[in-house]
């Protein structure tokens, strides 16, 4: 396999949520491209401040859900209506009201499992996957901003460092090669 070229990142650490948000707004207004921000908990609307697209997972869940509904209806109608029709309690072979509980359960099952699988795949999560950690404290109490120097060639490294320091990072920004 071809070895990927190393990317150089500048890592800024914040210790306060509001400082982080205002820094993101200022830096983006100045034209700086932020690679990503790593936080210990979901910071409300962080994706909006970073200009990321809204996640479409809910739509995926809906599609998985209706798949489950369809499969459940087909399965029950086929089994009791066509494969081996029996008269049970004088009901129709395809007794629609009786199919509601199983249809509902399979809808929920497919929607949840499908959505969680999509979630794991879209984030590249899975057993044995290695995390790319710019600073391990981002899982504890720090907000870590990573800036890809290769994608911000119109600024020098020193300018970006100065910009970070002016906008409330709590310590000297570090460089990290990935």
């Amino acid at each position: 396999m071809e070895k990927k070229e190393k990317q150089e990142f500048l890592v800024g650490v914040f210790d306060n949520e509001s400082k982080l948000i205002s820094a993101i707004d200022t830096l983006r207004a100045k034209g700086l491209k932020i690679h990503d921000v790593y936080t210990p908990y979901p910071v409300h609307d962080l994706d909006v401040h970073l200009g990321f697209k809204r996640t479409r997972l809910a739509r995926a869940a809906f599609l998985f859900g209706i798949t489950g509904t369809t499969l459940a209806i087909i399965m029950q109608s086929y089994m009791l209506g066509f494969a081996w029709p029996m008269i049970i309690g004088g009901k129709d072979h395809i007794a629609v009201p009786d199919f509601v509980p199983v249809t509902f359960e399979l809808t929920v099952l497919c929607a949840s499992l499908g959505m969680v699988a999509t979630f794991l795949i879209s984030n590249g999560l899975g057993p044995g996957k290695k995390a790319l950690m710019f600073d391990p404290r981002s899982t504890d109490d720090k907000y870590v901003m990573a800036i890809d120097l290769g994608k911000n060639s119109k600024f020098t490294k020193e300018t970006i460092e100065k910009m970070l320091l002016d906008n409330g990072v709590s310590e000297q920004p570090k460089t990290k090669e990935v």
Binding site: T39, P42, D47, T55, M115, V116, L125, P127, K130
Partner: peptide, 23 residues
């Protein structure tokens, strides 16, 4: 699972939590 706490991951995580709660 190689969790890194990036913005996109958290945004999706919150959506998963909300939809799973709804289901």
């Amino acid at each position: 699972f190689g969790w890194d706490g990036s913005t996109r991951t958290w945004a999706r995580y919150e959506m998963v939590a909300l939809v799973l709660a709804g289901l």
